[in-house]
Design a protein around this nucleic acid. Sequence first.
RNA 1: GGGCCGUUAACUCAGUCGGUAGAGUAUCUGCCUUUUAAGCAGAGAGUCGUUGGUUCGAAUCCAACACGGCCCA
Length: 493
Amino acid sequence: MSASDRILVQRLEKLQELRRQGVEPYTNKFFPTHRVNEVINRYGALSGPELEKLNSTFRMAGRLVLQRHFGKATFCHFQDESGRLQAYVQRQVVGEEAFSLFKKLDLGDFVGFEGTLFRTRTQELTLAVTSFVLLTKSLRPLPEKYHGLVDMEVRYRQRYLDLITNPEVRQVFLSRTRIIALIRHFLESRGFLEVETPMMQPLPGGAAARPFVTHHHALDMKLYLRIAPELYLKRLVIGGFERVFEINRNFRNEGLSILHNPEFTMLEFYQAYATYEDLINLTEELFGYVARELLGTLRLTYQGQAIDLSPPWQRLDLRESLTQLGNIPANVVYDKTALLALAKKEGVILRPGEGYGRALTKLFDLLVEAKLVQPTFILGYPTETSPLSRRNDDNPEVVDRFELFIAGREMANAFSELNDPLDQRERFVKQMEAHTSGDLEAHPLDEDFLTALEYGMPPTAGEGIGIDRLVMLFTDSPSIRDVILFPQLRPER
RNA sequence: GGGCCGUUAACUCAGUCGGUAGAGUAUCUGCCUUUUAAGCAGAGAGUCGUUGGUUCGAAUCCAACACGGCCCA
């Protein structure tokens, strides 16, 4: 029998023994009067004598995480959602029978306490227990009390153990929730309406990515998990909702990495009568708002790099970035034939139909992206790789679009929306040609969306911000798996 | 898909030159009424990721595979 089996057997025996003694190991209806942080915040500053004068009792509950037994007394720490507190259980106070029961409890058990507050010799705020009740018997041992749980695989597969053991992990997910709440508040205060659009779509549009496919039996039709909500949000702008946003999951059928999880959370928002230049300002303000509210400062450290979110952020043309940071001579960058040759030399594989524009963005990914540590808007994206963006009025070869880079990675993508239905149709047709020649990520032609556009969409700008990467930035997390509660893993064997 | 690293008790980790498995925590027993990773004494606990190979002998060397991590595509 393995050690873990033996512990399980031991505890099952304990469970039976408790029941024989008339102790219910899964007691219901214990209602705490205080949580740990309330007690610490309200009484943490009081002296021992002041605590005694309080003369009030506290009902508290939590999971046993540490215990130190003596012959006739026990110190233990229990933790609830808000924190950890020490409790002191004495035989002469709770009685002989109850005390021997308490000594039999295991780390991991949930216990309800009633008692008064005092200070120990070392001045630790402690609950002097007058009575207690076992609320939930735990049958499996917790990870080690000092080193905690370290094994990455177990931390991801059994996140609850990670959360019980590692307080900094709890903090990351509390921050994640707070960041999302702040973004909601920011957008709502500017008149944006939060909406929900289909996760299951008959055509996967709004981005360049391979989708997950599923099947609806009753309708006997193929459905795709969405890769982006974009085309549905624009339909809502057409329908008269002038400012909309959605924070929800996207699904992309691609490999796993430190930056990629197949399902991830995206913010997309659309603002009628705005241009991508308005969104530059809005983005600076949004990041600034989140940083000030969450961190109290616009300066943060990500993985050892100092990052300053103070506006205005640098703006750089895509092709200029290739000369300035990618060290590609200007005469190569602006010469289509020379650039294509360079791209080939750098290992970029271009499919039929892909040309200069694709080569530019690929070379940017390879040579420039990682160098953009401070927030930088890259402008001047080629029309060829932006099938949903409005062409620039002066130069139809590029679109009114930016991508935002911080800490060497893409954080946002925004553009003035293409609202000319005839141009949009042409772009879709080009994408279909790319698809035919083997680009599995090419955008499908969405006839239903074109119909909507033909009714007329006001001039609009839209943006997408990857929430997981944003949370990584603000919580200094190295991997996307650190900010997703249950990241995708291979199945265990 | 390729490269590198890791996988030993429930947890955190040692394990030398190939000689047959160790510590701390946790658990169990005993002592202990102000401890703080409490302490002291004792006990139990292992498919050394899996499968093959080399060898008199493999946690250790070799190969394949699985899972995880990092880097690259």
